[in-house]
Nucleic acid binder design. Sequence first.
DNA 1: CTGATACATTGACAGGCGTCAATATTTAGA
DNA 2: TCTAAATATTGACGCCTGTCAATGTATCAG
Lengths: 120, 120
Amino acid sequence: MSKQTATKVRSTAPTATTACCPSVLGAPMETADAAELASRFSALADPARLRVLSLIAASPEGEVCVCDFVGPLGKSQPTVSHHLKILSDAGLVQSERRGKWVWYSLNRARLSELRTAIDG
Amino acid sequence: MSKQTATKVRSTAPTATTACCPSVLGAPMETADAAELASRFSALADPARLRVLSLIAASPEGEVCVCDFVGPLGKSQPTVSHHLKILSDAGLVQSERRGKWVWYSLNRARLSELRTAIDG
DNA sequence: CTGATACATTGACAGGCGTCAATATTTAGA
DNA sequence: TCTAAATATTGACGCCTGTCAATGTATCAG
């Protein structure tokens, strides 16, 4: 605790990771858990990617073709692919190739995990 | 929609912002809403800041002195202050000066807003 | 096989972010 | 008022990220 110390004492409760995934507001987080969670929240920390998720969620079929992201997002096709890859790597979306097109859909379980990670 | 177009058609449901705050999985997000939400998620996109929130949540009194972050986080005092400012600017924590010390506590309402923003 | 379309990858660039040392500010106590 | 302690701010640095143009890859139509 170095030289500086206040009157109150930090909790030293045992570090326990939640069943499925680390929780921010539960027990004190391990450094590794924090790093992993942070990288997942990083996937949500961009306007274009949030709009990607939103567009998929708003789609009646629950899936959107890559070509239908480009216009609404106002970004180049490579940039859109870049964002889709980040969301895919984070496990928040999944893709399926059908013919020339690639369709992206939400992974609601992974999104739900992120939500419960900030449960109080 | 440029030159490329798939068989299925995007939903053009009316853009309606939720009562309190934009929701990712509700109606299609406006660009401005997406930008604001993204900036809030950015506050969660760092391991040190997640551990700050976790340390506060794990504290019995619900508040932690700045000096008690420095050791556990393993970062310099200016770096800790920097992260606290980011969390504070995002409205996720609030500070109160008492004597020489500054105590930080969670703003659970704002955290809850972020949680509901990814509600399905 | 050839050409066109849809998507992914690469390379390059500018801007933002995390980090620390140094310094400034605020507060309490002597 | 002077000194020490706690916190915030500034400046500088390297790294990461979002962006696009150019190119590569895959699929279909002919």
